[in-house]
Computed example of a mutant assay.
Amino acid sequence: MIQLLYRLIMFTVAFYGMNMSIKAQVDQHKEIFNTLKVNDSLIFERSFNKCETHYLKQLIAEDFEFYHDIGGLETSKEAFIKSMKNGICNPNNKTKSRRELVEGSLEVFLLKDNGNVYGALQNGVHKFFETTNGKEVAGSVAKFSHLWVLKNEKWVLKRVISYDHKMQEQPIVDGVEISNKLLDTYIGQYQAKETGLVVISRTEKGLHINAGQMSADIYAKSPSLFAHKQAPLTFEFVSDSQGKITKFIVRENDNIVEEAIKQ
Rank of each mutant, 00 (worst) to 15 (best):
W155D: 07
E103F: 09
V176N: 04
A220D: 06
V117L: 03
N210T: 15
N92F: 10
R46H: 12
H228P: 02
L207F: 07
Y219E: 13
C89P: 06
Q170L: 14
A211W: 04
F144D: 01
L42M: 11
F11N: 10
K247W: 05
M10R: 13
E100Q: 13
N180Y: 05
I256E: 00
I172W: 00
H68E: 03
I245L: 05
K229T: 09
N34Y: 11
M20I: 12
G119Q: 03
E204S: 14
R202K: 14
S215C: 03
P171T: 12
C89R: 01
F64G: 01
Y118P: 02
W148Y: 13
E107R: 13
Y219V: 14
S162R: 14
R251L: 03
F226Y: 15
Y163T: 09
T95M: 12
H54K: 10
V26H: 11
D164L: 12
K23S: 13
K85M: 07
A227Q: 10
R159Q: 05
M20V: 14
Q189W: 09
R46M: 12
N210C: 13
V117R: 03
D254C: 12
Q263P: 01
K154S: 07
A142L: 04
P171V: 13
Q263M: 13
D27S: 14
L183P: 09
D69F: 11
V198G: 00
K151A: 04
Q3W: 11
A79Y: 08
H126M: 08
T132Y: 02
I187W: 03
G196S: 03
